[in-house]
């Protein structure tokens, strides 16, 4: 039996680079203009899995993502970096899932890949920004959880030791396997794409993607079965529909407001003595300081 590691990764809009071109005339964010990327901390998670694979010849790294069809892109990115196989969990019925419904779906998919040793997630996704999915998947699978992983300090068959990065320090813990860990951004950066793997997996596709490309792909997949990215829907993971999407989500978004960068009246001063003196006098007179 291989040492199976399942990496959970999410495709996210790049909310870190909301530049001028991503802003609409009214000062709000144009989400469509944001590039879809591999969630940054999930790349750190992938790297941890790949480091274990370097250490253990029997390790196998499987990448799992739930998202729309185009999320297959991040599976390819993971294959180019050394993952062995990927699954895209996709179904319209998943739309609108909060973290509870998302973790329900992910936990069913992980269960289907049992037996496994480790599930590795990122700490937090940069769009929903909750950092809840990791611990919730762990609860649903009844696994111990180790959050904020910075590095694995020891890997044994039935136990691992992990250094965690906390707000004000570090902690080293051991956990029996199988376990779920979430990886912090202070962990090692992910390696770049590997040229050989890029060649090998350049044509990796889901069946839906192949059908869209309307080429005859049966021969290709017969010769190179590793090029198939499996897709799983509601039926494949035997999910209960009432636990999915909006109906399976206890949290509801009542309102969304875009943060508008409105210019407010502001007094512009120079660095001349009299400007600075006037400002300081204002502050003292109005008791803001002093």
């Amino acid at each position: 039996m291989s040492f199976r590691i399942i990496v959970l990764a999410k495709q996210v809009p790049d909310t870190r680079n909301v530049g001028k071109d991503a802003m609409k005339a009214d000062g709000t964010v144009n989400r469509g203009a944001l590039e879809a990327i591999f969630n940054p901390e999930d790349l750190h998670a992938l790297e941890q899995a790949l480091l274990i694979k370097e250490e253990r010849k029997d390790a196998e790294v499987i990448i799992l993502t739930m998202g729309p069809p185009r999320a297959a892109n991040i599976i390819r990115e993971a294959l180019y970096r050394g993952a062995d196989k990927g699954y895209l969990i996709t179904d319209r019925k998943f739309a609108g899932s909060d973290t509870l419904a998302t973790s329900y779906v992910l936990s069913l998919a992980v269960k289907k890949l049992a037996p496994f040793h480790l599930v590795i997630a990122g700490r937090q996704a940069i769009d929903g920004d909750t950092a809840q999915v990791g611990p919730q998947v762990a609860e649903k699978l009844d696994l111990p959880q180790v959050t904020y992983t910075e590095k694995f300090t020891e890997i044994k068959n039935k136990e691992v030791s992990i250094q965690r990065r906390l707000e004000r320090g570090v902690e080293t813990v051991s956990t029996p396997l199988p376990a779920l860990v979430t990886v912090h951004s202070s962990a090692a950066n992910c390696r770049p794409r590997n040229a050989k793997l890029l060649m090998k997996y350049k044509h990796a596709r889901t069946i839906s993607e192949l059908q869209e490309e309307t080429k005859d792909y049966t021969e290709m997949l017969n010769n190179k079965p590793y090029l198939q990215i499996d897709e799983w829907g509601v039926a494949d993971i035997e999910a209960g529909e009432e636990q999915l999407g909006l109906s399976g989500s206890p949290t509801k978004v009542k309102k969304i407001e875009n943060v508008v960068f409105a210019a407010k009246e502001s007094i512009v001063l120079s660095s001349e003595d009299n400007d600075i003196d006037r400002l300081m006098k204002d502050l003292i007179d109005s008791h803001v300081v002093g």
Partner: peptide
């Protein structure tokens, strides 16, 4: 959420 670019009101 969304990197601080939106403010959401959530209810349960």
């Amino acid at each position: 959420a969304f990197g601080g670019n939106i403010i959401a009101t959530i209810i349960n």
